[in-house]
Design a protein around this nucleic acid. Structure first.
Length: 771
RNA sequence: GGGCGGUUAGCUCAGCGGUUAGAGCACCUGCCUUACACGCAGGGGGCCGGCAGUUCAAAUCUGCCACCGCCCACCA
């Protein structure tokens, strides 16, 4: 209270503070949504982290952003719902458990499907969802009581229903089609799970003798082993060198198969030899050519990534690389290799396993996306869904306009097993197995993203018409990283429109990717990762939140410890300012803003009003680093450096100081919830939690006159300080010859020529050169 | 092959048509001033990647160039 002299040093123990308030918020049900409460609703669905996941920098930033938004609206009185949950993450989770089992020398095949799945569920029970606890440490006020999982019963029911429905509508179908086969994973993967890498291969030119012995046609390839599966040679019909050969046949070396020469516009005469070997089973290009010409496909590489029996006894069982070498040797022995040279090109690799993707024909389930995409395109075109930054909307549209069928089946065990049953040639798609004996269920599971696509409504209970669904759909904002715009965001828009008749969110905010300090990707394998949990332990959650917000931008940013330090300084500063104001008998909890007693009082109110208005605007535009910066400078420059000094000099009133601090805390709370809660609790007159405090009501309109006056004071005082500093005079030495600095405010009233007003932010410290 | 973005103080980044270009950190100087030395005060430092153009006015708009990065794409 009083007695500054004997006040015990109050240490701020951040970890203890965080623990205490995390608990208090939970007790008060701060994150718990109440669908029955009237008023506006505000919903955010968290991008569900993987069950296997631990908090990384992307999560830390993204969830800080979401918590900032949700706390702001909660304080404003909206009924807020921040949907909490995790994703089963099929491939990632299965891989983790398999790796775990491998330590004990167990493979998943040893266990069998059901037992393996039991192990995964056990694993999930024991280790899954750690990340949820880490989100609490970050201060996130999710609705933890309604935590969902993409494989819990209700959610799984929604997934099954959607699959069956899309099949009934004719969008989902089964087909033999060229897929990206991941030999490392033993599964098909979608186009989006493939990444291209630059690879140097050897391009080999091979002579295929014409069947009538009249010569040969030379083809070029970087995959000689696939020639075993060739079923044609294609040339451009306009290519004079070869046009006359169209319709004739040649003999496939090593195999002896007679294959036709076909004409196809796709073939580029300038490339290679101008003649293309056609391997429909192992090249997407060739697959299309074969479809156009009705050519058969011969699969010579199997799903195990090895040569099949179709490749012939001499090659079956080899890896493609081994086979390639042997084929080239054999062709050389027959004198059919015309040229060998290095060739650099891009080759698909699996994002999941890192294996080189093997394009092959496989029987899979696909979803045609064109009909689903149409309204989702319109939604973004018309601005029903808005991307920030807007360029991502363009990116979304470009992809959506050329959307291709989605391969939704995966040859995994962990996931939503397809609701498909077979008996002989019969196929049944439905929620239940059909009547009768002999039906077996499809072994495959759905792509993880199929279930993720339903997240904004399946989490709220769909297909049941729950109060939550009624009240909290659609959500307001989706905040995420750009790498899942296609994988997830686009699909949610499509599914939301299809099943809810309404877009799942109005705003999509694409936040920065935080890179390692040296500009490389943050990754565990590179050793470039920075662990946010360690950061929280070392700096406090508020500092980490603030620092990340300061770093965030419209582009990728490098991690900067300096920004975290800045956050820590802000936390400390607020704490000390609170102590000062409390010691000066400043009180909070006024029914109405206290009347300003001095120009300094009017000024701080004006500065707060200005910053609050700016903050609202910046938040609307997701300019979060500018928002954080504004709060920082309001606290440091205006409130602490000037206003509190004026208060100490008797130029401001304690009542106003208390109220101003309250506004400051309310403004800063969504960014740095822990310290603001702690400061609030310290203030005389405080009731309730800052987390449920009304937002910073601007304590009055901007007061231009007061701002001009204080600006003038600041200039004079700064000028005096500079003068003294340059004269090497001690800062506190009274300047007998100078105007007295202390009563500056009083002396300057009225201010004569108002100095040029600088519209606001803060006053520069580098003026008054010649004072 | 298309598309997008970046290049601003030693470092990490704001600013994106209008008075002398900003922040944090780092640096220099002076202060243990009774909220805070995790602090206070004062200060130095940038021809805003290059070239050309539009404009009364350009980091800010246009074009070209140079590096750097990302996304999309079925050229053997």
């Amino acid at each position: 209270m009083s007695g500054a002299a004997e006040r015990a040093p109050e240490r701020l123990v951040v970890g203890e503070v965080e623990e205490r308030w995390t608990e208090a918020w939970a007790q008060a049900g701060i994150g718990a949504a109440d669908p029955s409460r009237p008023g506006p609703a505000y919903t955010i669905a968290i991008p569900p982290p993987n069950v296997t996941g631990v908090l990384h920098m992307g999560h830390a930033l993204n969830n800080t952003i979401q918590d900032l938004l949700i706390r702001t609206r909660r304080m404003a009185g909206d009924e807020t719902m921040w949907i909490c949950g995790t994703d089963h993450a099929g491939i990632a989770t299965q891989a983790v458990v398999e790796k775990d089992l491998a330590k004990a020398g167990v493979r998943r095949a040893d266990l069998g499907r059901q037992e393996f799945l039991n192990r995964v569920w056990d694993w999930r029970e024991e280790y899954g969802g750690r990340i949820i606890g880490q989100l609490r440490r970050l201060g996130c006020t999710l609705d933890y009581g309604r935590e969902r999982f993409t494989m819990d019963d209700g959610y799984a029911a929604a997934v099954m229903r959607v699959f069956v429905d899309l099949h009934a509508k004719g969008y989902i179908y089964r087909d033999h089609y060229m897929v990206n086969w991941d030999p490392g994973l033993g599964s098909a993967i979608s186009d989006l799970e493939v990444e291209d890498r630059e690879v140097t291969d050897e391009m080999v030119s091979i002579a295929y003798p014409l069947s009538d012995g009249s010569g040969e046609i030379v083809v070029a390839t970087v995959r000689p082993e696939t020639m075993l599966g060739d079923t044609a040679v294609a040339v451009n019909p306009g290519d004079e060198r070869y046009a006359h050969l169209i319709g004739r046949t040649c003999t496939l070396p090593l195999v002896g198969r007679e294959i036709p020469v076909v004409g196809d516009e796709h073939v580029q005469p300038e490339f290679g030899t101008g003649a293309l070997k056609v391997t429909p089973a192992h090249s997407p290009d060739d697959f299309e050519i074969a479809r156009r010409h009705g050519l058969p496909a011969v699969g010579v590489i199997g799903e195990d990534g090895r040569m099949t029996a179709e490749a012939g006894d001499r090659y079956a069982g080899l890896t493609p690389d081994e086979c390639s070498a042997r084929v080239v040797d054999d062709l050389s022995a027959q004198g059919l290799v015309r040229e060998r040279r290095e060739y650099s090109h891009t080759v698909p690799f699996s994002h999941r396993s890192g294996a080189r993707v093997e394009p092959l024909i496989s029987l899979q389930w696909f979803c045609d996306m064109t009909a689903l995409a149409a309204p989702a395109i319109e939604a973004v075109r018309q601005g029903t869904v808005r991307f920030t930054p807007s360029k991502w909307g363009e990116v979304y549209l470009r992809w959506m306009e050329e959307i291709r069928p989605w391969c939704v089946s995966r040859q995994l065990w962990w996931g939503h097993q397809l609701p498909v049953w077979y008996r002989g040639d019969e196929i049944h798609v439905g929620l239940e197995a059909p009547e009768g004996e002999g039906w077996t269920r499809d072994e495959d599971v759905l792509d993880t993203w199929f279930s993720s696509a339903l997240w904004p409504f399946a989490t709220l209970g769909w297909p049941e018409q729950t109060p939550e669904l009624e009240r909290f759909y659609p959500t307001a904002v989706l905040s995420t990283a750009r790498d899942i715009i296609f994988l997830w965001v686009a699909r949610m828009v499509m599914m939301g429109i299809e099943y809810m008749g309404e877009v799942p969110f109005r705003d999509v905010y694409i936040h920065s990717v935080v890179q390692a300090p040296d500009g490389r990707r943050m990754s565990k394998s590179l050793g470039t990762g920075v662990d946010p949990v360690e950061l929280i332990e070392a700096n406090g959650a508020d500092a980490v939140r603030f620092g990340l917000l300061m770093m965030s931008s419209t582009q990728d940013v490098r991690f900067s410890q300096d920004r975290i330090d800045q956050g820590r300084q802000l936390v400390t500063k607020l704490w000390n300012a609170t102590r000062l104001v409390a010691d000066r008998d400043g009180r909070v909890g006024h029914d109405a803003p206290p009347a300003p007693a001095t120009v300094a009082d009017r000024w701080i109110f004006s500065r707060i009003a200005r910053t609050v208005a700016e903050a609202d605007e910046l938040r609307e535009g997701f300019q979060l680093s500018a928002l954080a910066d504004g709060v920082y400078h309001l606290v440091f420059d205006d409130f602490c450096d000037w206003y509190l000094e004026l208060l100490k000099a008797g130029e401001a009133s304690a009542e106003v100081a208390g109220h101003a601090l309250e506004q400051l805390l309310a403004l800063a709370h969504p960014l740095i919830p822990f310290i603001t809660e702690e400061c609030w609790a310290r203030m005389p007159g405080a009731e309730g939690l800052m987390a449920s405090h009304p937002p910073p009501a601007a304590p009055g309109p901007v007061d231009e006159a007061a701002e001009a006056e204080i600006d003038a004071v600041r200039e004079v005082v700064t000028g005096l300080r500079t003068y003294r500093h340059k004269r090497n005079l001690p800062p506190r030495a009274a300047l007998v010859m100078d105007p007295p600095p202390a009563p500056a405010v009083a002396a300057l009233d009225p201010v004569e020529p108002a100095p040029p007003h600088r519209g606001g932010r803060r006053s520069s410290r580098r003026q008054a050169e010649g004072a």
